[in-house]
Design a protein around this nucleic acid. Structure first.
Length: 825
RNA sequence: GCUCUAGUGGCGGAAUCGGUAGACGCGUUGGACUUAAAAUCCAAUCGGGAGCAAUCUCGGUGCCAGUUCAAGUCUGGCCUGGAGCACCA
């Protein structure tokens, strides 16, 4: 074995061998229990960044650990390869998005292989390839048949920079999630997925996911935004037969209504406007329409609005109140109209203050009544000024008042969700074409399944601005109706890339299937994913969409499980000097350089070493070097002792004779490392245990001059165990060492180590002796000591005698195998 | 504002059940080896105080209370950072 560690040489050698042997091939027909370890697949942007390295290393170690533990592990990789950057790059360089994407995939594949990841590349999935997007289109058709895909005219978020619409979830602070430019409102006819049909079950089933972090679950719950309340319908004094329904979560405050607000886009707003107010209302609405999201937000809660001139009638009191329009009422939520109770809602209060509208207190805290002159009172209380409901607790009144409305026919109980339907149309080229045609006679006609895939046209001009390049194809749009054979036009919109990534994990179970997206038995065998690892930035979008897809496909009978991802690990960001690595800050670290200078094993070890996976990780050059030095230290340890190590060592002396600390230390490490990986993947402590064991072997070896036969067995046991324990992380070094020591096959096919509970602890224990809760002495004692004996030993300690001399011992607390606390006065 | 999450040495972090706070590493300092450097190895490293010294002593896990023989860990209140949502009626 070479004296020095040359990672570059070793790593290339083994990567080649693994590839030639198809070493990580996964067999569908194994007797072993299955385990599906999944990383979020990357967008092929060009090069791997350190976030990828962290993500894939974590999953790889999990996959290898589970494999060693006897699972049949599915650990695949693929490419989320549709999307705008490819199209932009094509425009910029006059190339084709496909070429650009293929080149990036090739480069990044090379990098992934250099990282030594144990992927079964036979199962690679690439969303922009026709053999994949054919099935994205097919799934669209299934959802369409079920009524879960539909087209409607809607106010949409328009990003001018990207020339496309965005889903609600893709608008961040009024800006585009991808290019950061300001998002505008536009009215367009677009395709939607009816995710709202699944709002309740998407919320409820979060309880079925104990393996997800609470942060992600609450984010999803907040996004779905369930609330309980009531609908009340108000008659309009000036317009016979027209009613304005409102949704409220505070039916208890209904006697306090002093005005009512409808959104500027409210459907009946024109009927509700009197001729005298028409001009002002029109102007207000026109302004609201022009406003971008960001402008609407930047008004920072300064309320605006204009009166409509008409009046509503409160069926509970007979009182009349004015109708207004204001943009703080949202047309998409509830009924688009709000009953305003300024005394008990802060927004209504602000609005009423500004426009000098009347207020009426209807809820009070009897202990500390408020007149609501300076602020709304939104706490619980008792009803006042509310007729028959006076004196009732407001929580009880919610029910009683709604019941009255139900009885008298002007209201009902209502559960409301914030979640909106998922807008999937994109006016872009580089996506899966939506497989429908528009026929003059037959209307919307889905493309028959046997005509899939609808291929992206190649004869397009990428230099066009403000519209989709796909529309420039002279051949694409023009087609015939599959139904009547007449003239028809193809849909030129493509699907949001999140559609493609909402089902890719299912395809891994059966990636080559040309008859179906996946066979039912295979998908049921491999799924759900046992461990999903990825960034927290996908907590809402991708994970919610994937959950929706899984549930919809279950209802279509395509699979038999409810949730796609059993356990979710959201890894923290990789930082440099305290801030996120980014090209603009110039603080990026190129993985290629790390591979070249230190090797992939160092990169893998370091990225796992300093922080637990869920926390942010601060990259430091010194830390990388520290890990490189450690691997060198391990190498030297093995190389220096290689001649004394035998793979068929025998440690066959009776347990009682095992007073060798090294043997115990190895067992302690085995137990500790196994537990640390099993409990929340605490790789940082796993690596500190590698170091402890390495230090212990060095120390043990340093204390001996000559090794006798038994020593050699102990040495062999220790070093081979270290190699085994480190094999999921330092994948190349351990493989080389295993081979050099004469191991057969691959270290990565060896079973995980097993330890003896009796040996996985120190031979004696340290009895901690406290006086009044403070540590005063430590005594090495036999573990078998009874509680009385422990007490006796503690009281016998000279230190204790000294400290308790002349004092009264009030109490002695004995914690078995640990501690004695003597309480004195 | 609401929801989630975190707060421990110079730094990253460790500490199954409430039971030795600071594992392991980085950094720093001193030393060995070397003509020298790199590499490597050894030692020290939470703060204050006492002592020539071994050592002893006090304080210490964001802040303030509480429960307990015993609190980084449990309870109540507060402060700060991070993330998400945000006029959702």
């Amino acid at each position: 074995m070479k004296e020095n560690y040359f990672p570059q040489e070793i790593e290339k050698k083994w990567q080649k061998i693994w590839e030639e042997n198809d070493a990580f091939h996964v067999d569908d027909n194994s007797d072993k229990p299955k385990y599906f370890a999944l990383s979020m697949f990357p967008y092929p942007s060009g090069k791997l960044h350190m976030g990828h390295v962290r993500n894939y290393t974590i999953t790889d170690v999990i996959a290898r650990f589970k494999k060693a533990q006897g699972f049949n592990v599915l650990h695949p990789m693929g490419w989320d390869s549709f999307g705008l950057p490819a199209e932009n790059a094509a425009m910029k360089h006059g190339a084709n998005p496909e070429t650009w994407t293929d080149e990036n995939i090739a480069y990044m594949t090379k990098q992934l292989k250099m990282l030594g990841l144990s992927y079964d590349w036979n199962r690679e999935v690439t969303t922009c390839k026709p053999d994949y997007y054919k099935w994205t289109q097919w799934l669209f058709l299934q959802l369409y048949k079920k009524g879960l895909a539909y087209k409607k005219e809607a106010a949409v978020n328009w990003c001018d920079e990207c020339g496309t619409v965005l889903a609600n979830e893709q608008v961040i602070d009024g800006k585009c999630w991808r290019c950061d430019s300001v998002v505008e409102k536009k009215y367009l006819s677009q395709w939607f997925f009816k995710i709202t049909d699944y709002a309740e079950v998407l919320l409820e089933d979060l309880d079925k996911l104990p393996g997800w972090g609470d942060n992600v679950k609450t984010m999803q719950a907040n996004w779905i935004g369930k609330s309980h309340g009531a609908i009340f319908r108000f008659k309009v004094k000036e317009v016979e037969g027209l009613e304005v329904p409102v949704y409220t979560t505070r039916p208890d405050t209904v006697h306090g209504i002093t005005y009512l607000v409808v959104a500027p886009e409210y459907k009946d707003i024109e009927k509700l406007t009197t001729p005298e107010n028409k001009a002002a209302v029109e102007e207000y609405r026109a302004n609201a329409r022009k406003m971008t999201e960001i402008e609407r937000l930047s008004t920072e809660r300064v309320k605006t609005g204009v009166p409509l001139g008409t009046h509503g009638i409160n069926p509970f009191t007979g009182e009349e109140f004015p109708l207004w329009t204001a943009d703080y009422a949202l047309v998409e939520y509830g009924t688009g109209a709000v009953m305003a109770v300024p005394t008990h809602d802060t927004r209504d209060f602000d609005f009423a203050k500004k426009f000098n509208l009347p207020m009426k207190v209807v809820i009070q805290n009897p202990e500390n009544p408020s007149d609501c002159k300076d602020a709304a009172y939104t706490e619980p209380g008792v009803l006042v000024n509310s007729g028959e409901f006076n004196g009732m607790k407001n929580e009880d009144a919610k029910k009683a008042i709604t019941e009255k409305a139900v009885r008298e026919g002007f209201g009902e109980f209502k559960t409301q969700y914030r979640l909106r339907d998922w807008l999937i149309s994109r006016q872009r080229y580089w996506g899966a074409p939506i497989p429908v045609v528009y026929c003059e006679k037959c209307g919307i006609v889905p493309v028959p399944e046997d005509q899939l895939p609808v291929l992206l046209p190649k004869d397009v001009d990428f230099s066009v601005v403000g519209k989709s390049p796909i529309t420039t194809s002279p051949t694409f749009a023009e087609t015939t109706c599959p139904h009547c054979g007449g003239k028809a036009r193809r849909e030129t919109d493509t699907m949001d890339t999140f559609v493609c990534s909402s089902w890719y994990y299912l395809r891994y179970s059966d990636p080559k299937n040309s008859n179906l997206p996946f066979a039912k038995d295979k998908v049921n065998k491999w799924l759900p994913v046992d461990q999903y690892v990825g960034g927290i930035e996908h907590a809402i979008l991708h994970l919610l969409y994937s959950r929706f897809f899984t549930k919809a496909l279950r209802d279509l009978g395509l699979l038999d499980f409810d949730e796609p991802f059993k356990n979710l690990l959201t890894q923290g960001m990789v930082l440099k000097d305290g801030s996120k690595m980014s090209k603009s800050k110039g603080n990026t670290v190129d993985p290629d350089e790390i591979f070249e200078n230190f090797g992939a094993d160092t990169a893998r070890l370091f990225i796992l070493s300093d922080s637990p996976p869920a926390r942010d990780f601060d990259w430091s050059d010194a830390g990388v070097e520290g890990c490189y030095k450690f691997l060198n230290r391990v190498w030297r340890l093995i190389a220096a002792n290689a001649d004394d190590i035998s793979l068929d060592y025998k440690l066959e002396f009776p347990l009682a004779k095992v007073n060798d600390d090294l043997v115990r230390n190895v067992h302690i490490a085995m137990k500790g490392i196994t537990n640390d990986i099993s409990n929340d993947f605490q790789f940082n402590t796993v690596i500190s245990k590698y170091r402890e064991l390495t230090n212990a072997i060095y120390e043990w070896r340093g204390a001996k001059k000559e090794l006798n036969a038994e020593d050699k067995a102990v040495m062999s046991f220790a070093i081979i165990s270290l190699i085994k324990l480190m094999s999921p992380v330092a994948v190349h070094l351990t493989e080389e060492a295993w081979a050099e020591l004469g191991g057969k096959g691959s270290i990565h096919d060896q079973p995980w180590c097993e330890w003896d509970e009796n040996l996985a602890k120190a031979s004696s224990i340290t009895l901690v002796v406290q006086v009044n809760g403070k540590v005063k002495d430590k005594i090495e004692v036999d573990e078998a000591l009874s509680q009385d004996e422990m007490k006796a030993v503690a009281l016998d300690s000279p230190r204790v005698k000294e400290l308790t001399d002349g004092k009264e011992i009030v109490k002695v607390i004995v914690v078995p195998k640990k501690l004695v606390n003597i309480v004195v006065k």
